[in-house]
Design a binder for these strands. Structure first.
Length: 226
DNA sequence: GCGACAG
DNA sequence: ATCTTGTCGC
């Protein structure tokens, strides 16, 4: 299933080249079950001063948002964080968590960018191409690109994130008074579908439930209410 | 050359 | 990402 991820060989140039090749396999057309039955959120955290990579996967009923399963995978960290090469550092653990789930989701929300990336292959896009699963990137900060139009401070408002003249994602105001989320298609999801799909899972927090829950357990912040 | 830079 | 107290605003 999950295609092989190169190990850190200290050759960033090779990894960038691989990203460009894989970016050619990304589909920007909706290719998920409609209506959605299940959805899952993925995020990564670190322990032991960074020596251990902790990936969390939370599977939810796409309609009632009830948690159906949640898993955590811990692997020794094998690569440093390098802007633009995040997927090579976090994908191995994410794949392990995905395999642990009792069922594969119809759609995956991954913490990080989809195609809003220098070579159009952020971690969410890489995750989608490698697993074949439809995916969307939900990031908290811009890696590349800029918003040219103002974003209304209204829940659900969104405006294009562009690089040059190409649209690579959206700035989405998931919550009033909060910085916007950076949403971009990962794989098998159309640019125009991304904002609504993410808002469908936003409740009273800035992050949509799938990602918010995965973030909580991946970062050990689930002790108090779990 | 200089600044920017997901998590 | 992670380390952390107080503080601002609804």
């Amino acid at each position: 299933m999950a295609r092989e991820i190169p190990t850190w060989n200290h050759n960033a140039a090779e990894l960038r080249k691989l990203q460009s090749e894989l970016a050619g396999e990304v589909s920007l057309r909706d290719g998920f079950a409609k209506p959605l039955r299940t959805i899952a959120g993925f995020d990564v955290g670190f322990e032991d001063e960074g020596a251990t990579t902790c990936a969390a996967a939370v599977l939810l009923d796409a309609n009632i948002r009830e948690v159906l399963d949640q898993q955590v995978a811990r692997l020794p960290t094998a690569m440093p964080y390098i802007p633009g090469l995040l997927s090579f550092r976090e994908l191995p653990a994410l794949f392990a968590a995905l395999e642990m789930l009792k069922a594969k989701p119809d759609l995956a929300f991954v913490d990080g960018h989809g195609i809003a990336h220098p070579r159009r292959l952020g971690i969410a896009a890489h995750f989608g191409v490698a697993t074949g699963l439809p995916s969307i990137g939900v990031a908290k900060k811009i890696l590349i690109g800029e918003a040219r139009m103002a974003l209304h401070d209204m829940r659900g408002a969104f405006t294009p994130l562009r690089d040059k003249s190409e649209q690579i994602g959206w700035l989405l105001r998931s919550k009033v008074g909060c910085l916007p989320l950076i949403v971009s298609p990962g794989h098998k999801v159309a640019m125009a579908s991304a904002p609504e799909l993410v808002m469908r899972y936003v409740t009273t927090y800035r992050l949509p439930e799938p990602t918010r829950l995965a973030d909580r357990i991946a970062s050990r912040r689930d002790r108090s209410s779990d």
